[in-house]
Each structure stands twice: as C-alpha cells, then as structure tokens.
Nucleic acid binder design. Sequence first.
DNA 1: AGCACGCCGACT
DNA 2: GTCGGCGTGCTC
Length: 803
Amino acid sequence: MNIASVIVDVPAMKIDRPFDYLIPEQWIGRIKPGMRVVVPFGPRKIQGFVVELKEEAEVSKLKAIHEPMDLIPVLNRELLELGHWMTDKTLCFKISAFQSMLPAAMKAKYEKIFVLRNDLTFLPLDLQPYFERNGRLYWKTAEAENLLTLLQKQVDNRNLEVVYNVKAKGKKKTVRKYYLAFDKAKIEEIKESLGNAVKQREVLEYFASLEAGARLASKDIVESIGVSSSTLKTLVEKGLIIEKQEEIYRDPYENRNFAQTKPFQLTSLQEQAIKPILHNVEENSFKTFLLYGVTGSGKTEIYLQSIQRVLEKGKEAIVLVPEISLTPQMVNRFKGRFGNEVAVMHSGLSIGEKYDEWRKIQRKEVKVVVGARSAIFAPFENIGIIIIDEEHETSYKQEENPRYHARDVAIYRGQYHQCPVILGSATPSLESFARSQKGVYQLLTINKRMNAGEMPPVTIVDMREELRKGNRSMFSVDLFEKIQDRMEKKEQTVLFLNRRGHSSFVMCRDCGFVLQCPHCDISLTYHRFSNGMKCHYCGYEDVVPKTCPECESEHIRYFGTGTQKVEEELTKLLPEARIIRMDVDTTSRKGSHEKLLKAFGDGKADILLGTQMIAKGLDFPNITLVGVLSADTMLHLPDFRAAEKTFQLLTQVSGRAGRHKLPGEVVIQTYTPEHYSVELAADQDYDRFYEREMMMRKMGSYPPFYYITLITVSHEDLLKLVNIAEKMTDFIKARLSPQTITLGPVASPIPRIKNRYRYQCLVKYKREPNLEATLKTLLEQYEKQYTSEGLSISIDVNPYMMM
DNA sequence: AGCACGCCGACT
DNA sequence: GTCGGCGTGCTC
C-alpha cells in the first residue's frame, strides 16, 4: 500500500477526481485515508485529502506526496463516505464536500514566494534590498512593486527560485508553563542555595505550597506572587524550573459558571413521547422520529433525558439548533446538564475557537455537541442519538455549495450509526409531517403545554380597517392600548417586526419612483446609520436623493418599517417607555445579543422590539403581550413556501407570551386577515393548516408531492444567457422522463445581481433516476463557457430559496 | 483554479 | 527581430 489516491484542493469539474501519488518510504504505513497531505500539482504545491490507499496505479509517472498535514486522519471512514454521498446528492465538488465537514481553520492557505538560491550579490543591485532580510520575497509584494519581470529573469538565471507553500490556517494556542526541575522534597535545600535572591526564593516557595508536579502558566505566577518574568527566566537558566510551551484550548465559555440542573419529572405526555426514543437508544436501532410538540411543551427536556441515556451507554450525541436560537439560554441548558461534556459550535465563535471545539470532539474529550448546521459533521465515531430542534427552520439548508440539508445528513449518519434521529418542532415542515403521516418517520405528539399553561388568546387586527378609521400609525388602537395597559401593570411586551421583504426603501410620493440598485434589479434599502442607501445583494451604496431623479419632486422619502422607525414612533407615542431594540445593527457585536436579552429579562425595559431573532427561545415570565406589527409581509414573496413560513413564524412568535404564571395575549396586525396562514396561526391549528397547505401543494405540484430542483444560470450578456438557458432546458427535458415537469427558462425573481442577468429552470419530479447523471453531464458540457466567458450555473437540489 | 506553452501585433 | 497580449490544454 504505497500509493495514495488524493482529492486535491482545486474546485473544478475536471479535477474533481482522485489523483494518485507515491507515498515516500518514511511515511508508508503512517499515511491513512482521511488525512490531509501536501502534494505537488503541476508546478505548485497544494492541499489534498487521501481517500484511498492502493498497490498500483494506472498512471506510471507518479509524483510523491510532499508531506502529511495530520498525524491522525481528520476524516474518518464514515465522513469520507458521507463526502462522496454529498457530492452525488448535491452535485458539488468532492473537495468542497470534504472542506465543508471541517472547521474553516483547516482549509489551507497558499503562499507563493521568491527564494534566493545563490549569494545575494548575484542579484542586480536594485533587487538586492528586497532579499536582504531573509532571502525571501512574497509574490504579492513583488507584484505590487511591479518587479515580476525583473524577478522572472533571475528565476531563469537560477539566482532565484519560486516556492509554493501550503500553510495551515489553524493555529494551536499555546502558553508558557513552568514546573519544578527537581523533586519537590529537595525544595528547602535548593532554596537555601539561592542565598538572598528573594524573588527567586518566593517562586520556589510558591511551588512548595502546591502539589508535586504542578504546572503553572507564567501569567499565574506573575499575578499570584508579583515577581517579574525575568525572575522566572533566571530560574530557567539556573536549571531549577523548566519552561514548556503547552497547548491550550480557547474556551469561549471560560470563567462562566453553569448552574447544574437535574432531570425534571416528565409529564405523562412527555413520558409517552420519550419512550419510543429510549427504546431505540437501547436497541441501537435507527429510526427517524418527528417530535411534534407545541411551544412550551418541554421538548428540550426530552432531548436532555434522551441524551442522558445515550451518554450512560457510552455513546455520543449531536444536537442541532438553528443559528438564531443558539442563544446563551440554550447553551446553558445543555452545559447545565452535561457540564464539560458539551462542545458548542456556532458562527459567533472565532475561527480558532471553532477549531478548538472541533478538536475536543475529535479527541473524544466531549460527548455532546450542540451547534448550528455544520455541527452535523462532528467527528464522533459512536453516535447514539441525533437531534434537530426546530426541524422546520430553513437555516438547516446551506445556501452555497455544497447545498446540503442538515436533516438529510442527520438521517444518513443515523443510519450509519444505527441510532435514532429526532426532528423536533412545534410547526413541522410539510415535508416532515407528510413523511410522518406516511409512516416514514414515527410521529410523537405533545399537544399540551408543560405546566398546563393555556395557549394565549390571539386577536387579529385588520390594518385596512384601521386605515379606514383614519389611524395611519403602525400601531392599531387595540395593540396600542394593550401596550399601555402592560406598562401600567409593569408587565412586559414583545413587539415583532417581520422585516423580510419589507425593508425600508425610498419612494417618490408624486410619481412612485423607487430607488433601485444600478447593478441588481432590486430596490435599495435605506440605512439610517449611515444615512445612505445600500444594496443588500452587491453592497452598492448611494446617498439619499433630495429630489426625485425622475420627476424632480421634493416629496421623496423613505417608506417601510425598519425597527429603527418603529422605535422612533414608539418613543413619540410613549415617551416614558423603556425600549430594547434587537436587530442586526444592535446585535452585531459579540455578546451584545446576550446582553440585551439579559437586560430585558432583568426587567430593565418594558418593550422588546425586534426581528426574526426574537421569535425563538425567548422565555421570560413577565412577558404577557406579544404584538406582531405586520404579519403578512412575507406572504407575497415569490416562494411556494411563503404561507408555510408565515404560519410557522406567527405560531412561534405567539408562543412567546404567557409561558409562565401570568396569562398571555397576542395581537397580530395584518392587511390580509382572511388568509388561512394568518387565521390558522391565530387559532394555533397546525392540523388544519397542514391540510389546507397540502391541498395547495398538490395543486401546484410542489413538495412534498413532488421533488424539485432549481437550476439557475447567470451571465453578463442577456442575449447569450437566454440562448444558453433555452438550450439547457431543452437538454434537460430531452433526457428526463415524460412524467417530470420542467418549467422555464424564465428570468429569476431577482433578474439581475451584480450586473449579471439570471435565468432559471425548475424541474419537478416524483422519481427521476436520470436526474443526477443529466445534471452532471450538463455541468461538464458547459464547463468551457463557464471558465472562459463567465457563465455561471448553480444547481440546487431541493431548494429552499427560490430567488 | 493556476500555470506553462504557444502563436500573433507594436516596440527597441 | 523581441516583448507581451491572452487562447488552449494539463495538472497523478
């Protein structure tokens, strides 16, 4: 086994296959599948993943592996297989699949440098200064200084050499640690020999007060006894203490105490739900459960107790939570129960912190990982349960390559490890609920709140009616009075603004002109912070015009309801109200999310005003009123899931009220009160919503009745694009079965982004064995145009974003 | 994706 | 006659 098949770090169709390399003598037996290696590829050196070892290769002129990057594989056999499966399912490159399973820190960084081969004096005088310091010069620097031609000559003369390096991004954090170089028993004796070097003696005394073999960070010693680091240095030089660099973890939750919690007594409904799960845990058998439990029904406790059992069996657990609800509250619940056995993975961590959490998992120092989407790839080898909370959340689908859905990966891994997979939600996705109806998933229902709390009554307010009555503010009379009432009672209100599809734009009141991005076909968004207009797709920025560019009217102003605007109006109407606003602007700083929530929880505000991010996990006893300012803003998005998303959001938000002793109440303001997703969310009637929506899906041939795949092509040249899009659609149609519906090509809902026109083609199918192969051929055929003239093709199997 | 190789226009 | 443009094809 002295040949390694390697997938190299070049994302291109043609390269997306293994290349064989000789394993140098000294590494034979030590290089294993799943390790990262540095290999020569053409003139450069790049990173690759060993996927297989073999005796013989078809190619005769094999190059040798330059060096391994790992001592033990970073991808185990299961994950390697999973990578291949993802490549097939999502039509991505193998290298992208592998990289997406690892923390970003493990992605290679490349550098290209000129290195001196001879004495400096061989170089022309004007080049010498660049190489004086260390005989090296970065290609990038040379390029910036316009030296490439000159340097190239010296490369030809063999005075210089171009070297390609692969650098690991992930750095292990280390600290200097000190420990005694001799037996602790001899301490007095040695101390005497130091004479009157007071500080040095103090250090030894300090060590004497500790247990034998203690290792101390320099910082600790310096702070505890107030010696300087030069004292330590002297002691090291005298050979009395030893200095060593030791690897440590960056701990994002350092210096935080987690109050330990004990398992609660389950209600009888919870008991019934957990039984089948525990059964599968005991039997080591795979099964997917859909845990359908209303908000506040105690799903988390079921997760915790199931995990408890898994840990008792010596196995591991993965818990996925949507990014936005991966709040400290959530983390506390897991850390509180399982303490140091828990690793947390979310986007708020730095690259280094994520790397450290990942290594804790790899080294089996933790047994539970709680994290967002990518935590599904946690390198556990003995998984006993996989839990996906808020299963319906669309953030489980990655919107860039590889476009995988964490739910699918979870089921793959569940099958591999023969363990239960739990999908939990108060508002399951239609796909999952339909599967539970068909018996593919086992349905577990909890239809009552834990402490027998009632669901809060919901009032729907028709905003058209308000307008007719002359109320032009964004608060209906009803909602406003209720807010005032809560303030008098010293209770808290949560106001939810669904901003998506409804951000502030600038419109001329005379001619209706809306300011648009010159590169993308969408309206610019008004940002108060910079008092400018910004495009959310390409980042284009402009100033707010004083007069309308179309009709020169001065009546041009911004519309729409950003959280800032709501806050302003609220302050005007209720000057004494203490308001906390939570949106992207106020929570972008690390930890600010937590701080704001804590302040609200401590009663430092009367009203919490926010977007999406407050819809989940918020659980404070004093919240008795929840107001949704405009329920239907995303109902009109060009997306067949618009109604489902609206229903889910409204239900989630309503669940924030009255979770404890005080009774809660919900007010939903809307312009389309008759829409079934609004009505049924108000009634908290998932079952009827499911029936209604399934009917719509059936009529439109959408999931869960059909699978869909979306192919989007983009190009700078509209005519060329239309031409290509038509040819591609024909190509697809010709190869798929007649029962399959192929729609398009049509312009995408956002017809242009970053000056590139976009067309799409939608394929709906029930069974289409040819699909993967067809799309792969399609990609291959257009690869040339892809690279040479900037055509771009994106294929999304089971898309969640139709824009 | 890079990079080398290779074949045609404007310069010393 | 050379420098340098970017089209083409390869990378174990």
